[in-house]
């Protein structure tokens, strides 16, 4: 287990803007904060507050204009495109609002997908995938295609895919945004278990206060700035 005194994510003076036509629109200005190992953080804020952008930056699928962004000691803002891809494969688990499963792959194959980037043998992969799917309660749905699963079931496959590689952080962008209340509660309970039982660091973007309650702490973003009243 990591040393609790050392933050796993260390963000300093992070700034990001987008070009909208001729105009430069600032999205994040001078953000600095830390996330410690084992934390479960909810990022909240109105549309356009920059919460998704911040999540994308932490997950290494977007690049900041300036500032530093260290995850387990590595400044990912300086990594090349290819190194970043390797880094993501090893360190980040993704959970999306619309699940983003490959429609041509079965539940089993979708969860197995990230393991194809590892040296694991076929049998090792199968053992892990079967266990992961049993953990999310989908043992009997392994050979089903996403189109044959409900929204909640699809999101559970996505969660299994996210933690199968044992990533350092899990990022979830509106994981319950497309689900009914009951399914949403299921998903939140699983995220809580990932956090409490496996000690996963989770960063979740949501605009649903009910979902945010699952988190240890809530960070509010307003017009690209962190509201530190919390």
């Amino acid at each position: 287990m990591e040393n609790l005194s050392e933050p796993i994510v260390q963000i300093r003076q992070l700034t990001k803007s987008y070009h909208r036509g001729e105009q430069l629109v600032p999205v994040l200005t001078n953000i600095s904060f830390d996330i410690f190992s084992g934390e479960f953080i909810a990022l909240m804020g109105p549309s356009g507050s920059g919460k998704s952008t911040l999540l994308n930056l932490i997950a290494g699928i977007d690049k900041p204009d300036s500032g530093s962004l260290k995850v387990s000691g590595i400044d990912i803002a300086t990594l090349s495109e290819a190194d970043l891809a390797d880094w993501r494969a090893a360190n980040v688990g993704f959970i999306f609002q619309f699940y983003n499963l490959m429609p041509v792959l079965t539940a089993f194959e979708n969860v197995e997908l990230p393991l194809l980037l590892t040296r694991l043998s076929r049998n090792q992969r199968r053992e892990r995938v079967e266990l992961a799917l049993s953990m999310v309660g989908l043992t009997d749905r392994m050979e089903h295609y996403p189109s044959e699963l409900s929204g909640g079931q699809q999101q559970r496959v996505a969660i299994a895919r996210a933690f199968i590689t044992d990533p350092v952080i899990l990022v979830a962008d509106e994981p319950t945004g497309d689900l009914d209340r009951a399914s949403a509660n299921d998903i939140l309970a699983m995220l809580e278990r990932l956090n409490s039982e496996m000690g996963k660091t989770i960063i979740m973007v949501t605009h649903d206060p009910h979902a945010a309650k699952s988190a240890h702490s809530i960070r509010h973003l307003e017009k690209g700035e962190l509201d530190v009243t919390n």
Partner: peptide, 14 residues
Amino acid sequence: IAEYATLKALGFGP
């Protein structure tokens, strides 16, 4: 395109 983006996010290269 969305699938390609997802694969990229998971660490698959261009």
